[in-house]
Amino acid sequence: MSYDYHEPHSLDDALALLTRFGDDGHLMAGGTATVLLMRQGLLRPAHVVSLRTIDGLSGIARTPQGGLRIGAMATHRAVERSDAARGYSPALVDAFASVATVRIRNQATVGGNLAHADPAQDPPPMLAALNATITVRSPRGERTEAVETLAVDHFTTSLSHDEVITSVLLPPILPGTREVYLKFLPQTADDYATVSVAATLRFADDATVADVRIVLGAVGPTTIRAKRVEDALRGARPTPERIRDAAALVRDEVDPLDDLRGSADYKREMARVWTERALAALTR
C-alpha cells in the first residue's frame, strides 16, 4: 500500500496536518499497533503523521508535588528503566515491563498505548488505578481526561481525530498506599493477559481501608473499575474472609469475551481469583 509519511517538527504542525487530512490521516507514535494493522491491510490511511520528530514529548520526571509526569512519546522501556518512575511506584514499572518483549517495549510509547485502547494492554489498568490523567492537545487548545474514562469501547477512545495525547500525569501517592499489578498468563509468558488486576490500597491509622482502587484489564471492552469490590472494602478491616467475599463481587462487574485466551466463564472466575490475590498482596 502507499501512503504519505509526515514527520512534523512541532505539535502545531502535527495538529495542522491532522486537521487537513481528516479521516484520511492517521497519527502514529511508536507504530507497534499501527504498522501491524497496516500490514494486515486493515488500516489504509492516505497519510501517516508521525510524532517521533517532535521534541519534548518523551520526558519522565517527578512533579514538585511528588507525582510523576510521563511524556506521551516515552517508550515502555524508558518507563521500565526510569528511576523516577520506579521511585514513584514500582507497580507502575511492573505494568510497563509486562508488555510483550523488550523489542516491542523499546518501540511502543505510553501515549500510543493509551490511544490504541486495547483492553488487554497492561499499562492502562495500572495508570487508571493510580488515578492518572492525560493531557490532550488539539487546535482548540488543551484539555485533560482521566485514563479511566479515556477508552469507551474495544480499540475506541473518546479522543477526536485531531486530538493528540501529550503527557500522562500521575498524582502524588498518599503515604500508607500500596500498589500492585498482577498479570495472569496461563499459557505462555509472551502473551496478552487473560486477566490483569491493578490495585492501590491505602490503610487508615486504625488499620481499616481508607481508600482502594481496583482496575481490571482484558475482561471487558475497556478496562473495568471494580467499584463494588472497592465499596465492600472501604472503611473495613481487610481480613482474608472479607477480601474473599469482596473479590467475589468482581464476577458481576466484568464483561469478558470468549476468545483464544479463555472462555468468558473462565475469565470471570479468574478475575475473582486475581482480584483476591491482588488484595491479599496489598494487605499482607
Partner: peptide, 9 residues
C-alpha cells in the same frame, strides 16, 4: 494468536 513457546516458558 497462535501461540508457540518463548524461552521463558
Amino acid at each position: 494468536d497462535y501461540k508457540i513457546p518463548t524461552i521463558a516458558d
